[in-house]
Simulated assay, not measured.
Amino acid sequence: MEPVTPCAPRTPRRTLFRQSWHDLVFLHWPADPFEVAGLLPPGTVPDLHRGRTYVGLVFFRLRGLAFGGTPALPYFGSFDEVNVRLYSRDALGRRGVVFRSLECDRLVPVLAADASFRLPYRWSRIRSQWFENRLLYRTSRRGAAGAGARVWLEIERTPVVPEPVEEFLTNRWGLHGRALGRSYYLPNTHPAWSFRRCSLLDWDDSLIAAAGLSQPEGAPLSVLYAPGVPVRFGTPVPLPGT
């Protein structure tokens, strides 16, 4: 089993694309492992921490999307994103995330991600705004079935050491997905996180239920803020037997 480490256990030999993530907000709730198992790609199972698995709702700003060693894309390479994610591992012990939905406020990246990696991107309206040390994110999906989410929090200034379960949920060095009839693992690497604790002032969500999961009960068990990291993704690797 791959250990949970603050830095990637492997470095991709080739950089497929680069980007940086800013002003990340992580909300997490416990999830039913049997329900999660039915939503993962073949060749993966729910990753458990002390017998429990989780669903995450993550807000952030993506900047500087670039392919290989080329310059960052103008306009289309920067957008806001909100995703619903689950936690997975494969037969080789690699831990990853599985995205159930990814809200994005640029249409072209939505179409490109669906065509290439079959990631469930959705074209949405997303707004983020700072009020001194308070941060507000709001998103609503375009169209008739307009699922959405909102988080309003106050961020402490002093960095904190995350709890073991929070390390388990955030130290993820790849994603599992499925495209062209095969499951795959897409590795990534970035510097170690720097986290700050938050006071959750208000929140609302209908994205988790829209992603096929039971709506969590009550407030999230973990709320974290991270200023951001630069990220590199390697090339996808097919999962054996899928």
Rank of each mutant, 00 (worst) to 15 (best):
R196Y: 00
R178F: 11
N83T: 03
L48C: 05
R95Y: 14
P236N: 08
L186S: 05
H49K: 00
Y184S: 10
L169Y: 01
V25M: 08
G51P: 03
H190W: 03
R61E: 13
D105I: 07
R178V: 08
R172Y: 05
G146R: 10
P230L: 09
R134E: 13
H22R: 13
L224W: 00
P71A: 09
G68A: 00
L92W: 14
F67W: 12
D202T: 03
V84G: 00
T235C: 14
R138D: 08
R61G: 04
I155M: 02
V229N: 07
S140M: 15
V110N: 06
Y121V: 02
P33M: 10
N171G: 08
F76D: 14
V161Y: 13
F117Y: 15
Y54G: 00
L39T: 04
R94D: 09
S183P: 06
V229K: 07
I155S: 00
R118P: 09
W203V: 01
P220C: 03
P33G: 06
Y184I: 07
A37I: 06
T158Q: 15
G143A: 03
P41K: 07
V160S: 12
Y185W: 13
V237E: 14
T15Y: 14
Q129R: 15
E154S: 08
A210C: 06
G69E: 14
L73I: 04
Y137D: 04
P12G: 09
H28Q: 07
V97D: 10
Q129V: 09
R118G: 04
R85K: 11
N171T: 07
A8F: 10
L73M: 12
E2M: 14
L24E: 09
A37P: 02
W173G: 02
A179Y: 15
A192R: 03
P120I: 03
L16R: 04
T53A: 01
W152Q: 09
L213F: 05
W152E: 08
A113N: 05
T70I: 15
A91D: 09
F195C: 03
M1R: 15
C104V: 11
R141N: 05
R196D: 00
V36W: 12
T44W: 12
S116H: 12
E2P: 04
V160Q: 12
V160K: 11
W130H: 01
R196S: 01
R52N: 05
P3A: 12
L175Y: 13
L62T: 04
V231I: 13
R178T: 01
L27A: 02
F168S: 01
A8L: 11
L207H: 08
W173A: 03
S128V: 05
L62R: 11
G181I: 05
R106K: 07
D114H: 13
T242S: 15
V108L: 15
S206A: 11
P191W: 12
P9V: 01
V110Y: 08
H28Y: 13
Y225V: 00
F79G: 01
A211C: 02
R100F: 07
R157F: 13
P227M: 07
L102S: 03
P46D: 04
V55T: 02
P46M: 09
W29A: 00
V231D: 02
A219F: 13
T189D: 14
S140P: 05
A210S: 07
P30V: 02
A179V: 11
T15R: 14
F67K: 03
D202E: 08
S101L: 10
S183R: 04
I126V: 12
P9H: 03
G38T: 12
F131K: 11
P236S: 08
L135I: 02
V98N: 08
R172D: 01
P236L: 11
S116D: 13
